[in-house]
C-alpha cells in the first residue's frame, strides 16, 4: 500500500466509523442545548439499531427500518423527557436508567435476529463527479447516503443554532429557562421537542450501525459509542461543527488499528482496541483542565425547571 493510498483509506474509514458517533453526539447536543442532560444515548442507540434492523427485515425496506429506529429512539427519549421535565427527576439517574433499560430490551428484542442478513443494506453510492476529485473524492464522497446526510445535518444544525430565531430560543432554554419563559417561549413543550429530537438522532446513529456499517444485528453492538458521543458533546463545547471533527477523530482512532497492522507496525491489538476509550477520558480531562474546571456549558444544563421557583 502506498503512503497516499494508506492515508486516503484511513481518512475514509474514519468517516465511516465516525458517522454513528456523529448522529448520537448531535442528538445529545440538541438535548443539552435545551438544558436536559440525557445519559441514555447508549440505550437509545441500541434500541434504534435493533428496531431499525427489525423494521428492515420485516419489510425489506431499509428506509422503513430507519424510520422505526428514529421512532424507537424518540420514544425512549420521550420517557426521559417525561421523567426529567414533567416529574423533575434527577437527569443523571434517569439517563443511566434509560441506558440500562435500552441495553436489556434491545438484547431481548434482537435475540431472534442475530446472524440474519439485511435485505437491502445502505450501500456505498459514490456522489457523481465529486467522487472523482483526487484524494477528497474517495475520502468524502464514496460512502452510503447516511454519511452524506450527516454532513448536511451538521451544517443545518449549525445554521439553526446560531443564525435563526428559533435557534436562539433553543440556546436560551438551556442557559436560562426562567428568562426564556418570561419572554413567552414555551419552555416545557420545547424541551420535550428537543429531547425527543435528540433521541431520534441517537436512534438514527444506531440504525446506521445495524443497517449500513455492520450490516447485521449483534447484542450490545454500539460497544460504548453512545458514551463516547456524550463525552464528545463536552469536547465539542456544544458546537455541532466541533462535534463533527471530534466524531471523525474518534472514528479514525477506531479504524487506525487495522491500518497499522497493514503496514506492519508491531502494536498489540488489545492496546489499539482500548484507544478510543482512553482517548475519551483524556479528552474530558484536557477540556476540563483547559476550562479551569468551569465549562462553558449551557447554564441551566441538568437543572430541572420549576415555574414556581423562579
Amino acid at each position: 500500500m502506498t503512503d497516499g493510498a494508506l492515508v486516503v483509506s484511513i481518512l475514509a474509514a474514519a468517516i465511516t466509523a465516525g458517522t454513528p458517533i456523529l448522529y448520537a453526539a448531535l442528538g445529545e447536543l440538541v438535548a443539552e442545548r435545551a438544558g436536559i442532560l440525557n445519559l441514555g444515548v447508549e440505550g437509545m442507540m441500541l434500541m434504534g439499531a435493533v428496531c431499525g434492523f427489525m423494521g428492515a427485515v420485516a419489510t425489506g425496506d431499509s428506509w422503513f427500518g430507519l424510520a422505526m429506529a428514529m421512532l424507537a429512539g424518540g420514544l425512549m427519549a420521550l420517557l426521559h423527557a417525561f421523567l426529567t421535565i414533567t416529574l423533575r427527576a434527577n437527569q443523571v439517574v434517569s439517563g443511566l436508567a434509560l441506558t440500562l433499560f435500552g441495553t436489556g430490551l434491545s438484547g431481548y428484542l434482537g435475540k431472534a435476529y442475530i446472524g440474519m442478513p439485511v435485505p437491502k443494506p445502505f450501500a456505498v453510492e459514490p456522489l457523481g463527479l465529486l467522487a472523482n476529485i483526487p484524494v477528497l473524492g474517495p475520502v468524502l464522497f464514496k460512502h452510503n447516503v447516511l454519511v452524506y446526510f450527516g454532513y448536511v445535518l451538521v451544517l443545518l444544525l449549525w445554521f439553526f443554532l446560531y443564525r435563526t430565531r428559533q435557534g436562539l430560543f433553543l440556546r436560551a432554554l438551556g442557559e436560562n429557562p426562567a428568562a426564556a419563559d418570561a419572554m413567552g417561549i414555551k419552555v416545557f413543550s420545547l424541551r420535550y421537542l428537543y429531547v425527543v429530537l435528540g433521541g431520534m438522532l441517537a436512534g438514527l446513529g444506531g440504525a446506521y450501525l445495524s443497517l449500513a456499517y455492520a450490516p447485521s444485528w449483534l447484542e450490545n453492538m454500539t460497544a460504548g459509542r453512545g458514551w463516547i458521543a456524550v463525552a464528545l458533546v463536552v469536547f465539542a463545547l456544544w458546537n455541532p461543527v466541533r462535534a463533527l471533527a471530534g466524531s471523525y477523530l474518534f472514528g479514525g482512532i477506531d479504524a487506525l488499528g487495522f491500518h497499522l497492522q497493514m503496514i506492519g507496525v508491531p502494536i498489540s491489538v488489545f492496546f489499539l482496541n482500548m484507544l478510543p476509550y482512553v482517548f475519551t477520558i483524556l479528552v474530558l480531562v484536557i477540556v476540563l483542565a483547559r476550562q479551569g474546571g468551569r465549562l462553558t456549558s449551557p447554564g441551566a444544563l441538568g437543572v430541572p425547571y420549576n415555574r414556581e421557583e423562579r
Partner: peptide
C-alpha cells in the same frame, strides 16, 4: 463545577470501562 456534572463524569468513566471490560 456543579456537583451533578462531577457525578455524571464519574458515571461516564465507569460506564466506559464497564463496556470495554
Amino acid at each position: 463545577m456543579k456537583k451533578w456534572f462531577k457525578v455524571s463524569l464519574a458515571a461516564l468513566a465507569a460506564a466506559a470501562l464497564l463496556i470495554t471490560g
